[in-house]
Amino acid sequence: MGVDVFAIAAAALMALGFYGFVAQPHPLRRILAINIFGNGVFMSMILIARWLPDGPDTVPHAMVITGLVIAVSASAFGLALIRRQALNRRSEPGSTDD
């Protein structure tokens, strides 16, 4: 068996997420990068699930659903923090807190 084309996608999504996290340090961009990385991880889990001969293995599927909900909730918290940050800057121009 050769290289699964979806394995390329999984690896590339993780690599690009990794790159994005370092290269574009703005928090909003980091949230995008983190989620792209996460999607690569989920994709690799779905690939592993396909290896079970009797049909897709649902244990990794359940892990993807759990991981997805956690990632999105945490991202939503991050986005709320970004909005708060923007508001802080607007209310006291020229001052940041770290």
Binding site: F21, S44, A74
Partner: peptide, 30 residues
């Protein structure tokens, strides 16, 4: 709002770290 920046940075690192860990979990399961 004194600690918004610190909180956000903490969250981003924590979230990224746990997804890197999760990539390891996926491989272990495989």
């Amino acid at each position: 709002g004194k600690t918004t920046d610190a909180t956000l940075r903490y969250l981003l690192y924590a979230l990224f770290g746990s997804l890197v860990y999760l990539a390891g979990v996926a491989l272990v399961y495989g």
